[in-house]
């Protein structure tokens, strides 16, 4: 069981790394939002599911029936549900603000290599 959680957690941290490198490397504002919005949702989900999973399967049967452990895992799932709703909304709000303010998207043809 701890192997499954470890793999999930490492995958989550890997996607956080992808998001960070994307934010640092991408050429313009809108594509940075791509890296930020998507990778963060997936990475948060993977890492939190890993912890919730490990929390329940800590002491096999005894922890499955104890109310405290199950409650903590449910709380972690609540965080995930909240992130699912909130993160795209925040991304959309930032993008709309950028669109109204008038930040130019980077386009390929404008830049002659």
């Amino acid at each position: 069981m701890s192997l499954v959680s470890s793999i999930l957690l490492i995958l989550g941290v890997f996607f956080f790394g992808i998001g960070t490198i994307g934010i640092l490397r991408f050429p313009d504002f809108y594509s940075r939002l791509h890296a930020a919005g998507k990778c963060d949702v997936l990475a948060t989900t993977l890492a939190l599911v890993a912890v919730a999973f490990f929390n329940i399967h800590d002491f096999s049967w005894a922890s499955l029936t104890s109310w405290d452990n199950v409650r903590v895992s449910l709380k972690i799932l609540t965080i995930i549900a909240f992130v699912y709703v909130a993160s795209p909304t925040a991304t959309h709000a930032i993008t709309k603000a950028a669109f109204i303010v008038g930040i130019e998207p980077w386009e390929k043809k404008k830049r002659d290599l």
Binding site: G12, F16, G19, T20, I23, F29, R32, L33, A36, D40, A43, T44, A47, L48, V51, F54, N55, I76, I79, V83, S87, A90, I94, A97, A98, V101, I103
Partner: peptide, 25 residues
């Protein structure tokens, strides 16, 4: 731009959420 900074802060916040749970563990 300022909005770039907001994106950065947003990502830092998402990382911190996971980091808090890991610290708890």
């Amino acid at each position: 731009t300022v909005l770039d900074r907001i994106v950065g802060v947003n990502v830092v916040g998402a990382k911190t959420t996971v980091l808090l749970v890991l610290i708890g563990h």
